[in-house]
């Protein structure tokens, strides 16, 4: 569904869910994957919302990298340690095993080198958590098939020629990439369009169809 078709006063299910708890559901789900008291690096941390959640509710030593100056300012004002930088370049500067978790939340599709970024995450951190919009989601497919145009959704409202999202992937694509970089999938979750987790066990192709977003917890193999 395109954003333009939605009335300005309409609330998406996700926004409704957020309004209720004050937090995005995907962030809460993501925070659940992080062991309390661990060292965390959030790559593309925005205004530091997830980091603050992790610091407050999980007692984490939470650090971040963020490209936008506004995001860095907001994060520093929250008392977080955030570096202005570019995941595509600056992840290389971190020493091995510096963190327990390296998180990439809704950002992998905007990186220039997703594979390199994922490899670096698994070098810098013992675990990597990646959440991303699933381009295999049925509405995306329908949009492309029915309208013959690049899909636009409420979460991804950009036109094809003016989007920071240059490397979209589907859940199946990501599972393949995880295999290529030698990562083991510890946990995975998919969120449906209403922001609810697709709970029950299903084959990947079902998740790939029903999941609007996916979250993966990866570790290094061996």
């Amino acid at each position: 569904m395109a954003l333009t078709e939605r009335g300005a006063s309409d609330l998406t299910m996700r926004e409704a869910a957020r309004a209720e708890s004050g937090k995005r559901v995907d962030l809460l789900l993501l925070a659940e994957m992080v062991a309390p008291g661990s060292r965390v690096l959030d790559v593309g941390c925005g205004d530091g919302e997830l980091l603050e959640l992790l610091a407050r509710t999980r007692g984490c030593d939470a650090r971040g990298i963020e490209l936008s100056r506004e995001g860095v300012n907001a994060s520093v004002a929250r008392g977080l340690a955030v570096i202005q930088g570019d995941a595509d370049v600056d992840l290389g500067d971190y020493p091995d095993d510096a963190f327990d978790y390296v998180i990439l939340s809704q950002t992998i599709q905007a990186t220039r080198r997703p594979k390199w970024v994922l490899e670096q995450m698994l070098r810098v951190g013992r675990r990597a958590i990646v959440s991303f919009p699933n381009f295999g989601f049925w509405r995306m497919r329908l949009d492309l098939v029915m309208n013959g145009r690049m899909p636009r959704t409420e979460n991804l409202p950009y036109s094809w020629h003016d989007t920071p999202n240059i490397h979209f992937c589907t859940i199946r694509d990501f599972v393949e990439l995880a295999g290529e970089v030698g990562a083991k999938i510890e946990r995975a979750a998919a969120l449906d369009a209403s922001g609810h987790s697709v709970r029950f066990k299903m084959p990947w192709w079902v998740w790939n169809l029903l999941g609007e977003q996916a979250i993966f917890l990866l570790t290094r193999k061996g």
Partner: peptide, 15 residues
């Protein structure tokens, strides 16, 4: 910043 990261220090940076 690089050195502070390597030392595991809490560091923020903005240009």
């Amino acid at each position: 910043v690089h050195a502070l990261n390597a030392a595991g220090a809490s560091v923020s940076f903005a240009e």
